[in-house]
C-alpha cells in the first residue's frame, strides 16, 4: 500500500484535478504494520451530480486518534459521516467503493444501518444535547435499544459520564435539564452519550469549533484520555489541535486524500508540498 513519492512535482493535486487523472495519495511507511479497525477502499460519494469524494483509500488504526485535516469543502466531514452512514439521510446521495468496519462491509445492502450507528458513536460540531435531563441524555442510546433495567441505566450513565470527565460536575444534578449546562459541558455530555454503548469507533466532527479555549483544552485532554479505549476519528480545522491530540493525520483536498501518515511526520516532514503549505498555514 505504501509508496514513496517518486517525484513530488508530478504528483501535484491541482494537476490531477485539472487533467482528471486518478490521484494516488502519499502514504507513509509507518502505516504498514497498523492494526486497522476501519478500512476504506476506493470510496467515492456523490451528492446528486456533485462528486464529493474521489476514490478514498485509507485504514484507520485501532485505539489511536486519527485526525482529518484540510481546507473547507474538502470532504472531511462527508467522509466522517459516511462511516456511520449519516449521509443516507440526504436524498440523492450515491456511493461506490468499499468501507469495512472490523472486516464487515458498511455499505452492504443487507446491513442494518440502525445497528451500525450503535457501533459507531458520533460527536457533532455544535453540541446537541436533547431537551431532556442529563441522565436521559446519556442513556438515550440504551433507551432506544429497549433497555429498561434501572440498575443498568444508572451504571452506564455513571461510567459514560466518568469517561467523558464530567461526572464530578453533574453527579448531583443528573435529573436537571441538560440545556442548563455550559457549552463545554454540553459537548462533554454529548461525548458521554456517544460512548455510552461502547462504540467501535468514535467520530468527532470539529467538536471544539464552537468552544472557548479553556473548554477546548478540556475536550482535547478528554480525547487523549479516551483514545486508549476507543478509536477516534476527528475532523478539525485547527492545526495545533490536530498535532496535539492525534496519532495519525490525513490531509484531504478537493475530495481527495492527499497525504496520510503519523502526525509527527505530516507536520514535521510531509512528503508533498501541498501538505507542507497547508500545515504551515500558507495555503488553505
Amino acid at each position: 500500500m505504501t509508496t514513496q513519492p517518486t517525484s513530488t512535482t508530478e504528483r501535484s493535486v491541482a494537476h490531477a484535478v485539472q487533467t482528471g487523472v486518478a490521484f494516488e495519495a502519499a502514504r507513509h511507511k509507518e502505516l504498514v504494520e497498523i492494526d486497522s479497525v476501519l478500512d476504506v477502499s476506493k470510496f467515492s460519494l456523490w451528492y446528486g451530480e456533485n462528486r464529493a469524494l474521489y476514490d478514498i483509500a485509507m485504514s484507520i488504526p485501532r485505539g489511536k486518534v486519527t485526525a482529518l485535516i484540510g481546507p473547507s469543502g474538502c470532504g472531511k466531514s462527508t467522509l466522517l459521516r459516511s462511516v456511520n452512514r449519516l449521509n443516507d439521510l440526504v436524498p440523492s446521495v450515491r456511493t461506490s467503493g468499499e468501507m469495512l468496519l472490523n472486516g464487515r462491509s458498511i455499505y452492504d445492502p443487507g446491513v442494518d444501518v440502525i445497528s451500525l450507528r450503535k457501533r459507531v458513536g458520533m460527536v457533532f460540531q455544535k453540541s446537541n444535547p436533547f431537551p431532556m435531563s442529563i441522565f436521559e441524555n446519556v442513556v438515550y442510546p440504551l433507551r432506544i435499544a429497549g433497555e429498561r433495567k434501572k440498575s443498568v441505566l444508572r451504571d452506564t450513565c455513571e461510567r459514560a459520564l466518568k469517561s467523558a470527565a464530567i461526572w464530578e460536575e453533574v453527579k448531583d444534578r443528573l435529573h436537571d435539564s441538560a440545556l442548563g449546562l455550559s457549552g463545554g459541558q454540553q459537548q462533554r455530555l454529548c461525548i458521554a452519550r456517544a460512548v455510552a454503548v461502547e462504540p467501535e469507533v468514535l467520530l468527532m466532527d470539529e467538536p471544539c469549533s464552537a468552544l472557548d479555549p479553556i473548554a477546548t483544552a478540556r475536550i482535547e485532554e478528554l480525547i487523549h484520555d479516551i483514545s486508549s479505549r476507543y478509536t477516534v476519528l476527528i475532523v478539525t480545522h485547527n492545526m495545533q489541535q490536530a498535532s496535539r491530540v492525534s496519532d495519525f493525520t490525513a490531509f484531504m483536498y478537493l475530495g481527495r486524500l492527499v497525504e496520510y501518515g503519523t502526525t509527527k511526520q505530516i507536520f514535521q516532514n510531509p512528503h508533498l508540498p501541498e501538505t507542507e503549505q497547508y500545515v504551515t498555514g500558507r495555503f488553505g
Partner: peptide, 26 residues
C-alpha cells in the same frame, strides 16, 4: 433543529424513535 435529529440518528435511533422521542417533544 436538524442537529437534534442527527444526534438521535447518530445514537442509532430509527426514524420513528427519533420522531417519538426528539421531534414530537420538541
Amino acid at each position: 433543529p436538524g442537529s437534534l435529529r442527527e444526534g438521535s440518528y447518530g445514537c442509532g435511533a430509527s426514524k420513528w424513535q427519533t420522531i417519538q422521542r426528539v421531534v414530537l417533544p420538541g
